[in-house]
Amino acid sequence: MRALIAAAIGLATAFALVLILTAMGTPSGDTSPKPLLTTVPAHP
């Protein structure tokens, strides 16, 4: 029973956190025009 209560509290907390972050909206700012390198360039 305690595990069920703990799971319910954790789920409610996570759900509340998602709602708060959603209500805050997207942060202001611009994205970088330069692409990120995800691989290491090959050396000839």
Rank of each mutant, 00 (worst) to 15 (best):
R2P: 09
T22F: 15
M1F: 03
V18T: 04
I20N: 07
A12D: 07
A14I: 13
L21Y: 09
S32Q: 03
A14H: 09
L4G: 11
A3T: 06
P35K: 00
L37A: 14
K34P: 03
T13H: 10
L36T: 07
I5Q: 15
A3F: 10
G10A: 14
L21T: 02
M1G: 13
T38E: 08
A7G: 11
F15T: 15
T39E: 06
A23N: 07
T22M: 15
L37G: 13
G29D: 02
L21V: 00
L17Q: 08
L36A: 13
L19W: 05
P41R: 03
M1R: 07
I9H: 11
T39L: 06
K34Q: 02
M24W: 02
V18I: 06
L17F: 07
T22I: 09
A6E: 15
T39D: 05
A23I: 13
A14S: 10
T26E: 02
I5V: 12
A6V: 14
L36F: 01
L4K: 12
I9P: 08
A42D: 02
A42W: 05
L37N: 11
A8E: 14
A14N: 09
A14F: 14
L4D: 12
P33I: 01
I9E: 11
A42P: 00
T26W: 11
L37H: 07
A3R: 08
K34F: 00
P44N: 06
I20L: 08
T22L: 14
K34E: 01
A12C: 10
L17H: 07
A16G: 10
L21P: 00
I5S: 14
L17W: 03
A14W: 13
A23P: 00
L36V: 12
L37S: 13
A42I: 03
A7C: 14
S32P: 04
A14K: 04
L19A: 08
L4F: 13
S32F: 05
A23H: 06
L19P: 00
I20G: 06
P44V: 03
T26K: 12
A6R: 15
I9C: 14
P27T: 05
K34C: 00
P27L: 10
V18F: 06
A12R: 13
I5H: 13
P35F: 00
S28P: 01
H43C: 04
P41S: 02
M24D: 03
T31L: 10
P41I: 02
D30A: 08
A14P: 08
G25Y: 00
A16S: 06
A8W: 13
R2N: 11
L17S: 10
G29C: 02
L21R: 04
S28E: 09
P27E: 04
L4W: 09
L37Q: 12
I5P: 07
P44Q: 02
H43F: 11
I9L: 10
V40N: 01
A42Y: 03
L19C: 05
M24K: 13
T39P: 00
L11P: 01
I9D: 09
A7Y: 08
R2I: 01
L4E: 14
L21C: 01
K34L: 00
R2M: 05
V18E: 01
L11K: 08
G10I: 14
I5Y: 09
P41Q: 03
A12H: 11
G29M: 02
P27R: 11
T26P: 05
I9A: 13
